[in-house]
Design a protein around this nucleic acid. Structure first.
Length: 254
DNA sequence: ATGGCTACGATCCGTAGA
């Protein structure tokens, strides 16, 4: 069973890459972020033709999340209950015997900015939400673009990034608070090569230099993590013409 | 040198991403 997450940075632009990738990798469940697409323009027919049921929460220009699954999607919920937010960042469903929460966490722009404060508020609300969900759904995955590089080894140049947004202490503490609920970062359940990242700036030849951050993660509840047999980043789509700036992350469960 | 790309929705530049 393969569960993947991918920030596609415009679903309409990336649909050919996504379709090719689905055919090649054959994931069972896919969490998508940054659709940048209104629901009316969601490419439902194309994804159904590829063999997936779909649940999505979109908006014009910004944000937008979706879950694709080869199995039925049940009990779809959107947003974080009790956290009023115009930004479409969270969708959840039950599928293939597990609960899946797809998240597009806020960028935060710059430490100290209003968007940074929003990011921290948002993470606090997410923690309450996933904690409550965990008690109801022992087999729970939280997958997406967290916009946090949890440790220095997730950063190509920790010195240059020190104290910056995505790596600041409060952001990392907010991310670690999710692990405090019992979740595992599936990528770190396994021995990994060094310098594995999931995002590279479009500028400065960052991908060629592997100047990236590992900000996309698949978190698994204790019961689910026991069944995780692998977690990898698939860099292949990042090598294509007009790529997303993020690469997919794939976790395998027995 | 605080830029460098890319996507979007509005024009022929501004906002945002990370």
């Amino acid at each position: 069973m393969k569960l993947a997450t991918w920030n596609v940075n415009s679903l309409r632009v990336r649909l050919p890459h996504l379709a090719d990738w689905l055919a090649r990798v054959q994931p069972d469940i896919v969490c998508l972020q940054e659709l940048k697409t209104e629901d009316a323009k969601f490419p439902r027919a194309e994804l159904q033709a590829a063999g997936y049921r779909v649940a999505f929460l979109g908006q014009k220009t910004y944000n937008g999340v979706a879950i694709l699954s080869r199995s039925a999607l049940e009990d779809v919920s959107t947003g974080v209950p009790g956290f009023t937010d115009e930004q479409k960042r969270v969708i959840a469903c039950t599928t293939a015997g597990m609960r899946v929460i797809c998240v597009y966490c806020p960028n935060g722009q710059a430490v100290g900015s209003e968007k940074y404060a929003y990011k921290l508020r948002w993470f606090a609300a997410l923690k309450e939400y996933v904690g409550a969900e965990l008690s109801r759904h022992p087999s729970l995955a939280v997958a997406g673009d967290f916009n946090v590089a949890p440790e220095d080894r997730d950063v190509h140049d920790p010195k240059a990034w020190e104290g910056q947004v995505h790596v600041s202490g409060p952001e990392r503490a907010a991310w670690r608070a999710l692990l405090g609920l019992g979740f595992k970062d599936t990528f770190r359940l396994f021995e990994q090569p060094e310098k594995i990242y999931s995002w590279w700036d479009y500028r400065m030849l960052a991908f060629r230099r592997n100047a990236g951050l590992r900000i996309d993660q698949i978190l698994a509840s204790p019961a689910l993590a026991q069944h995780c047999t692998a977690c990898t980043v698939d860099k292949e789509p990042r090598k294509l013409e007009r790529p997303s700036d993020h690469a997919p992350v794939i976790a395998v469960f027995s």
